[in-house]
């Protein structure tokens, strides 16, 4: 009863970007290569290309987000698309309209693409299954499930600084259990041939059987960070201290916060990444966040190029 991958059409061409899981390496690399061509565009004086002229893109954010929504908006505008931002959290949903009703209404306004963020895992899949052929869906984060453009911009950053994937040791540190970013990173890293992916977290923040995703599990930073090339930190939500996941942010920082001392376990040329927004003093020390191994700001810049690449591959003319 397993369906074919809902992200690919019958010619195995990308029609939606919902998750990095199950995408062939060739498609991931096509997105990274396309993004390379857009990095140049963002550095020019005139930052626009006409690839998506006349296309309508709707940013459907059912969960508040400024940063991700803004990067999608900038990416769409640089491709000359018409962009509409809908902050659904405060409009239709509170009036009782269902998710798919909202989508149907917007589709009737000749939408070409939906960029969706939703608190429920699977929301983007549901929309992708529902819309008529020709409308593309980009998942900008669904529950704990996936955040593929974040993972792709992370892969882009890694390739920029490390050139190859096949000789790397990568560690992902933090709240793996609740993290859609971690899941998308893991699938992208393993698909691109990274031989060793580690996750480092206390047992309360790890989903069961996570090793089945192809990662090595560590519970302490000292051994988890030993000799790694790339360190991907995750944001720790403040809510985790309310339940029984963690006792306090102080104790978390002491054990899992990235300090220069813990970073010294990694290779000397290791890079430090973070999807943002950072909690300084909770998961990362300012000395590391602003230090010379940090590539956190380049990540943000590359995020625009990656989103331009995904949008143009989905809806644009062949580049």
């Amino acid at each position: 009863m397993i369906n074919r991958n809902p992200q690919l059409d019958s010619h195995r061409k990308l029609q939606h970007l919902l998750t990095t899981e199950g995408l062939p390496a060739a498609i991931l690399l096509q997105i990274l290569d396309t993004a390379e061509t857009f990095v140049g565009v963002t550095e020019r004086d005139v930052k626009k290309v006409p690839l998506l002229r006349g296309k309508s893109i709707f940013n459907l954010f059912f969960e508040p987000s400024t940063r991700t929504r803004t990067t999608f908006e900038i990416a769409a505008k640089r491709l000359s698309a018409d962009v509409f931002n809908l902050n659904i959290a405060v409009s239709a949903q509170t009036k009782g309209e269902t998710l798919l009703d909202t989508v149907d209404n917007l589709a009737a306004m000749d939408a070409d693409m939906f960029v969706v963020r939703h608190a429920q895992s699977g929301a983007a899949h549901l929309i992708a299954k529902h819309v008529r052929p020709g409308i593309h869906v980009i998942n900008a984060g669904d529950g704990r499930h996936a955040h593929p453009t974040q993972a792709l911009l992370d892969m882009f950053t890694i390739r920029r600084f490390k050139r190859e994937f096949h000789n790397l040791r990568v560690a992902i540190v933090g709240d793996i259990l609740h993290s859609r970013v971690a899941r998308s990173q893991i699938h992208a890293l393993t698909t691109l041939g990274v031989p060793e992916v580690r996750v480092v977290a206390p047992k309360t923040l790890l989903p069961s059987r996570v090793e089945r995703l192809g990662v090595h599990v560590f519970h302490d930073m000292k051994s988890g960070l030993k000799d790694i090339d790339v360190l991907m930190m995750l944001r720790l939500q403040k809510e985790r201290m309310q339940g029984a996941y963690l006792p306090s942010s102080e104790e978390y920082f002491k054990n899992y916060g990235l300090t220069p001392e813990k970073l010294s376990m990694a290779k000397p040329d290791a890079i430090v990444m973070h999807p943002g927004p950072m909690n300084r003093g909770v998961e990362i020390d300012s000395a590391v966040a602003d230090g010379n191994q940090s590539v956190i700001l380049p990540q943000v810049t590359f995020g625009i190029a990656i989103r331009m690449a995904v949008m143009s591959i989905l809806a644009g003319q062949p580049v």
């Binding site: 699977g122 704990r144 499930h145 989903p207 069961s208 059987r209 089945r212 995703l213």
Partner: peptide, 15 residues
């Protein structure tokens, strides 16, 4: 179910 599928799909799990 708290297993590989829920972990992959990011679904809150029942052990």
């Amino acid at each position: 179910h708290d297993g590989e599928v829920a972990t992959r799909l990011g679904l809150p799990a029942i052990p």
